[in-house]
Write a protein that binds this DNA or RNA. Structure first.
Lengths: 251, 251
DNA sequence: CGGGGGATTGACGTAGCTCAACCCGAGTGG
DNA sequence: CCACTCGGGTTGAGCTACGTCAATCCCCCG
């Protein structure tokens, strides 16, 4: 039985950093969007991007506001969610370095469908939708890469729809934990630590369940030795059995 | 109280038609993919597409099979769904003329994530994934149009996720009916007739509910004068109140 | 006119929501 | 450095929307 008292998450250095132009170019070149471009092309692109720093909890863009920018996460984690009329939030994605959000369309009169908030401190690169469109037109290879990214997200979204339509909470929760582990997990001895602060409410908003239900299910998982967790941190201790549950086996 | 005995759906002429080359070009030019292209470019594209006819009920592509083709619906309606391990189907989309399905990726070793079946008789245009990729590379404007299409579907998928996460069946069902009406409805006197054969099971698979629940809710809607329906057909009689329900008002 | 598959309705069970009390870890200010 | 507080987490006791099981209905077809 492991120590549940102290959070194993390293407190991330809260530096309101700004990248040097060189770093900015390296980050851009590392994103799936621009990876296929030559260095000189990336240099030409770089000054179209404005970088901004946000603190954990800050709202980056708000659902309903006119969608004028495309954003790329340079560092940190972003929560993308749809706030509903009755105050419930539905998280559609957790974004990390290299992911985009915001407007892909050029139509100026559209609005953001989702709110994006900084889950950790983060550095965001912003372009206007129009400028990004110019980039897409000028570099077809970037357009193709973007297409792959969006198609990938669509595939994920369909998987989530399947889960919400057909599977009970324990299964959705197991899937969500495994997906998070794969995307932002770090091996920590025999466990996989999910390297982000994540509340039960966040998990509830990601799985379409209520906080209490998530808390109960997490307690079940913990009692069964599948996970270890505390206040805003989670580690997976038995990925294999958790995978079984995600596939439909009983707890 | 309207006549519920006979189906108001016109029995569609079941002709295993093949388009002439001229018709094929006109159809391609009418899709969102190629609308921005000049006629001569479309002519050059047209012979990359192979057209195939399917009868209602036929399977066009099967989830799990290697994803080698991209398909565009030329005529008719296609149901796109994920069959789950326990035999339940989750419908992610109903596709009509101009919509695509299948593989957008170039990776040959991927598999289809969804099964596509002909909901009505239909005519499908097929290209290999590789050839379509060449088209995307050659005509950036097509790549951008494709990007818009995929981004649009992603937006829809997120809306569905919101619904499944946060709203009860009656609300999801009302939304689904209105969306169908908008996409494939025809004004029929004061009502909007949904021009496709649609079973309670189909609706259940689209809303993440069970047949019996859908049947009960449809009966409620009918008793309240919101819709009219029978064996595999539906008409909306009070779109305004139905919109209210989709927005959260009680029945 | 008979059969079959979709649709309907009823009776009942239960997963997950609601409401509410309580616990506890971590940051804060004296 | 301690006490206080506050926000996240846990647990319990009902309740209800929805699923399950099963019987019946009835449109459509041969």
């Amino acid at each position: 039985m492991s120590e549940r008292r102290r959070s194993p998450l390293e407190p991330v250095a809260v530096s309101p950093f700004h990248c040097t132009p060189v770093q900015l170019r390296r980050i851009l070149g590392g994103t799936p969007f621009f990876a296929p471009l030559a260095a000189e092309d990336i240099n030409r692109l770089a000054d179209r991007f404005r970088q901004t720093h946000f603190q954990a909890g800050d709202t980056i863009v708000r659902a309903g506001d006119p969608a004028t920018k495309l954003a790329i996460v340079a560092a940190g984690l972003v929560k993308l969610y749809r706030p509903t009329a009755d105050g419930q939030d539905v998280v559609v994605n957790i974004l990390k370095s290299g992911d985009y959000f915001g407007s892909l369309a050029d139509l100026g009169n559209e609005t953001y469908a989702e709110t994006a908030t900084a889950q950790t401190d983060c550095c965001i690169l912003l372009v206007t939708a129009g400028e990004f469109r110019e980039v897409l037109e000028r570099y077809p290879v970037v357009a193709l890469a973007t297409l792959e990214l969006v198609a990938d997200r669509l595939r994920n979204a369909h998987a989530v729809i399947e889960q919400l339509s057909a599977y009970p909470v324990e299964r959705r929760l197991a899937s969500t934990l495994l997906t998070l582990a794969e995307r932002i997990g770090r091996a920590d001895g025999t466990r996989i630590l999910i390297e982000m602060p994540l509340s039960r409410q966040d998990l509830a908003d990601m799985t379409g369940a209520k906080v209490e239900t998530v808390s109960r299910t997490m307690s079940d998982f913990r009692r069964s030795g599948l996970i270890d967790s505390g206040r805003r941190w989670i580690a997976i201790t038995d990925a294999e059995r958790l995978t079984g549950i995600a596939g439909g086996e009983p707890v």
